[in-house]
């Protein structure tokens, strides 16, 4: 799973498979971080313009 685990080999299979995994996880992680930080800022500012 990680390049430092002993099964890891720097071959195409590992790079493509794990690359896809980390790519997806990164998007989810960044997306959620953005949402949480922005929500905290909005909440502090008392910004309440939107309704859904």
């Amino acid at each position: 799973m990680f390049p430092f685990s002993f099964e890891w080999i720097w071959d195409m299979d590992h790079v493509v498979f794990m690359g896809g995994l980390w790519y997806a996880l990164t998007i989810l992680g960044i997306g959620m971080t953005y949402c949480i930080i922005k929500a905290a800022i909005d909440a502090c500012r008392g910004n309440d313009e939107h309704h859904h």
Partner: peptide, 25 residues
């Protein structure tokens, strides 16, 4: 709760990104 209200709103805003990742997965 203001934080949750904003969090929900922000998540809705970028839901397409999450949905696209979901489709990929």
């Amino acid at each position: 709760v203001p934080f949750f209200h904003h969090l929900s709103h922000n998540m809705h805003e970028i839901m397409a990104v999450f949905a696209a990742t979901g489709v990929f997965l």
